[in-house]
Design a protein around this nucleic acid. Structure first.
Length: 512
RNA sequence: GGGCCCGUAGCUCAGCCUGGUAGAGCGGCGGGCUUUUAACCCGUAGGUCCCGGGUUCGAAUCCCGGCGGGCCCGCCA
């Protein structure tokens, strides 16, 4: 469809009363592509049924052979072939004309009988076709879809339309979320919404977005995490709560970070980190099984196939042992200065003054890239975990774990700190850190209301946050988090529109 | 914040190093074809070489600046 001929096409359609923007307001759909293929899978080549179905979707390819035309029609489930045969539609006066004008990219509804062609393709043998909308712009229907990365992100509807990996990621994330909701619901969790506009940001260490509530003339922050609010609900006596929360963090964008992302955060009273690791295993393993049909998932990563095994129980390693395994030298008990020296010898610069941060950096550099199957990493340093409870056997550590899959951090959880005295002390430590290190280092702000809530008494509680975009990235084999987010920010551009040249046609649709 | 790379037809790209009439495939358009699968066959049109400036007899090509985009490093999940 060339741009200049769109208006000509609409003009000739209008002459016959077939302009879809005048005549087509709805179409009764009775079947979907995938359902038809499943239902009639036993049909033999050349067989024809008398079962009439109505399907609708977009035309991807047209193969016209004169007296017979094959159309690849895509609905939300996939492809179905439509066969238009001259001898079948001869008695339908509009069909000859319609077949002349419809193009790939147009959206049509088809009513016809289900058949299997001689070559074995389950198809709808059209008796009637309705043009429901046209494409005003050419659509690149070829094997690779939109390849220019700029156009992929600017016109994401094209990428989602044409790139099945991206489309499946969006659909499968929905399915995973629904399955996780089902599991949590069966355990008595309730789903809540916590504020996205917050007077004090917290629950993570990150730069916030700053905005203003006009009604109160007050500066507020977009939520970087729902954590402190969900734990206030634990104090309030809602002992099993979760939220699938959009989080906003004003940090740089790369393959695994985006300023808005979605986490499932769950908190359970009377539970500890071991319970939360078990819950994390169940939520992810069972939802993966349900959506992908198996605990083992084959993932295509840029041409080569990798297998991720979600079979429970997952491997557990502790952070310092894992570093020592690779480094072949002791890190436990070493001073900050010694650790810094080791880091420097590996080319890892650490500006953050906390000892634990050096260990975390070493871990990320030495251990994380080699992790493939789901692995819990336990016993994080206490000084970089201000909301976690100290390890019951050694207060130098926190009862905190992270989950890694395919070299990516997917989840983070701990035995929640419920002691207001320690929480206040840790917030003070963070304030001190910020004062010393300046704005370069993220520190958790003092939140006096949160400490007050703890002063009323919070039961022992376990919590976990699961990064859903990263999870679906890993499961889909997509290399960038932007690939699984339906729409991302692009710099404004001037958009040339086809319709700018057709203003005189407006009257046709509005009268007057 | 630092570094590297890319921008040519609707799409995917070649041409650039070494300056000399703008190229291919796919798609589009016209024609043919009653069992195709990115159909096939014949014919045909299509370009502000991202923008601006400079060097040159001459710039898609060399130089400078800008715009847009991607990747890597640092920081955040």
């Amino acid at each position: 469809m060339s741009e200049s001929s769109v208006f000509e096409k609409l003009r000739v359609l209008a002459e016959r009363g077939l302009d879809p923007y005048v005549s087509a307001y709805r179409f009764e759909v009775t079947a979907r592509a995938e359902d038809i293929k499943v239902k009639y899978s036993s049909l033999a080549p050349g067989d024809e049924t008398n079962d009439v179905v109505s399907v609708a979707g977009r035309i991807w390819h047209v193969r016209s052979h004169g007296g017979i035309t094959f159309i690849d029609l895509y609905d939300e489930t996939g492809r179905i072939q439509v066969v238009v045969r001259r001898d079948v539609v001869e008695g339908n006066p509009k069909m000859g004309f319609l077949m002349e004008v419809i193009d790939k990219g147009d959206i049509i509804g088809v009513r016809g009988r289900v058949i299997r062609t001689r070559r074995g393709e389950i198809s709808v043998l059209a008796e009637d076709v309705e043009l429901l909308a046209i494409t005003w712009r050419p659509i690149p229907f070829h094997e690779f879809g939109v390849r220019d990365p700029e156009q992929r992100y600017r016109e994401r509807y094209l990428d989602i339309m044409l790139n099945s990996k991206v489309r499946k990621a969006i659909v499968n994330l929905y399915r995973l979320e629904m399955e996780m909701r089902r599991i949590l619901d069966s355990k008595g969790f309730i789903e809540v919404h916590t504020p996205k506009l917050q007077p004090i940001y917290g629950g993570a260490l990150a730069k916030p977005f700053v905005t203003k509530v006009n009604a109160l003339d007050r500066v507020v922050y977009l939520s970087i995490a729902p954590e402190t609010y969900l734990k206030r609900l634990i104090v309030a006596g809602l002992y099993k709560v979760y939220e699938i929360a959009v989080c906003f963090r004003n940090e740089d964008i790369d393959a695994t970070h985006y300023p808005e992302f979605v986490q499932l955060e769950a908190y359970q009273a009377f539970a500890d980190w071991n319970d939360m690791m078990a819950l994390t295993e169940e939520l992810i393993a069972e939802s993966v099984k349900s959506v992908y049909g198996d605990y083992e998932v084959e993932v295509d990563v840029e041409g080569s196939t990798k297998v991720l095994d979600f079979t429970r129980p997952w491997r557990r390693i502790n952070l310092e042992d894992a570093i020592e395994d690779v480094l072949k030298t002791r890190v436990k008990g070493r001073s900050k200065e010694e650790l810094l020296e080791i880091a420097r010898s590996l080319g890892v610069e650490v500006r953050d003054p906390r000892r634990g941060k050096i260990l975390e950096k070493l871990f990320e550099k030495l251990v994380v890239p080699s992790i493939v199957n789901p692995t819990f990493v336990t016993l994080f340093p206490r000084d970089i975990s201000p909301l976690a409870r100290p390890y019951r056997h050694d207060p130098g550590y926190a009862e905190r774990f992270e989950l890694y899959i395919a070299g990516l951090e997917i989840a983070n959880g701990y035995s929640e700190l419920n002691n207001p005295l320690l929480q206040y002390h840790f917030f003070k430590e963070e304030e001190e850190l910020r004062r010393m290190a300046g704005l370069d280092v993220e520190a958790h702000p003092m939140d006096r209301d949160y400490v007050r809530a703890l002063e009323y008494g919070m039961p022992p509680t376990g919590g976990v946050g699961i990064g859903l975009y990263r999870l679906i990235m890993v499961l889909s084999g997509l290399p960038s988090i932007k690939d699984v987010i339906p729409f991302t920010i692009t710099t404004p551009e001037h958009v040339e529109l086809v319709v700018e040249n057709g203003y005189e046609m407006v009257r046709r649709y509005l009268g007057g």
